[in-house]
């Protein structure tokens, strides 16, 4: 063997170089997400004494009592716990006042706030501003049951396992994505809260579906110069002027949310091709293994 002693040193150096390069690549990939300072997701709130409190537990382990109000808000949250709460006030009497109590059932008010257009993922728009209502869940039901009773929920898998990723198909695909926030306080500003009496009644929101309108008034209102300090310190919406009167985008009702899950199905070309590929490569593997054995 002529290469017996050839290049022992350089080989080592190369191995080391490859190891280091792999390390750098891995960490660069891993670290990329760290540079982001905010996440875009459905934040979960529970009302306490008529103010929204960020829930310390997940919806699966948060058990409501009769007369509770829970809230969901889709937004770019810079810091969970001090983040953006649903803009409507958690007023149980307004939501469930007309709903009679039933034995073995809990009445829970729920507010689902789709957030502002500025917080929407690229190419998507909030299907509405917000919706609120009253749902019945069996005693012992969790916050997840409350949400499911109110809307079509998309739940994550894998690393996002168990997370509420989408409500009523919004956002369509992503799940608690990290986003780099711009220095402008656009997404941080609390949009001027609406007067609760006009928006909270169950199933009686003004209607006009214009999903194609890119500039929803909610987005417009969010760009209004609201003090960012207020966003960080007080998640309690103060009842103020009501810009929601001029709203053109229609907040879906609870009932419409429940039926919204049925999307148009088309033939799953990708899945079929993928399955065929898997079968082909797998068959190739077993064929080669058998050929070796012979």
């Amino acid at each position: 063997m002529t290469t017996a002693r050839r290049r022992a040193g350089p080989t080592q150096a190369r191995v080391a170089a490859v190891t280091l390069a792999t390390l750098v690549i891995m960490v660069a990939l891993a670290g990329r997400a760290h540079a982001a300072t905010a996440y875009r997701y459905w934040a979960y709130y529970v009302a306490q004494a008529n103010t929204w409190q960020f829930s310390q537990r997940g919806p699966a382990t948060e058990y409501p009592v009769d007369g509770e109000v829970q809230g969901w808000r889709f937004a770019i949250q810079t810091e969970a716990g001090k983040g953006l709460a649903p803009r409507a006030l958690p007023d149980f009497a307004k939501m469930c006042g007309s709903t009679p109590a039933t034995a073995g059932q809990l009445r829970v008010g729920i507010v689902i706030d789709f957030g502002v257009g500025a917080d929407a993922p690229t190419g998507e728009h909030p299907p509405g501003t917000e919706v609120s209502g009253c749902v019945h869940v069996a005693e012992g039901g969790s916050g997840a049951d409350v949400l499911r009773a109110a809307a079509a929920v998309r739940i994550g898998t894998g690393a996002d396992g168990g997370l509420v990723c989408g409500i009523d198909g919004y956002p369509a695909n992503e799940c608690a994505t990290a986003v780099t926030t711009k220095p402008t306080p656009t997404s941080n500003a609390i949009p001027t809260p609406k007067a609760t009496p006009t928006t909270t009644p169950l199933l009686t929101s003004p209607a006009k579906a214009t999903a194609s309108t890119p500039n929803t008034p909610a987005a417009a209102s969010s760009s209004a110069p609201a003090p960012p300090v207020a966003a960080a310190s007080s998640p309690v919406p103060t009842s103020a002027s009501a810009p929601s009167i001029a709203r053109t985008s229609r907040p879906p009702t609870l009932a419409s949310l429940r039926t919204a899950a049925n999307r148009t199905d088309h033939f799953p070309v990708g899945a079929v091709v993928g399955a065929a590929l898997v079968v082909a490569v797998g068959a190739g593997a077993s064929w080669r293994a058998r050929a070796r054995r012979r």
Binding site: P121, N173, P268, G270, V273
Partner: peptide, 23 residues
């Protein structure tokens, strides 16, 4: 390019999409 195709949803049940670049 295809956000969501890497983590197909199981609730609601859906046929997973094929992420072409990965394939």
């Amino acid at each position: 390019l295809q956000p969501g195709s890497l983590h197909p949803t199981t609730y609601p049940l859906a046929v997973p999409a094929l992420p072409w670049p990965a394939v």
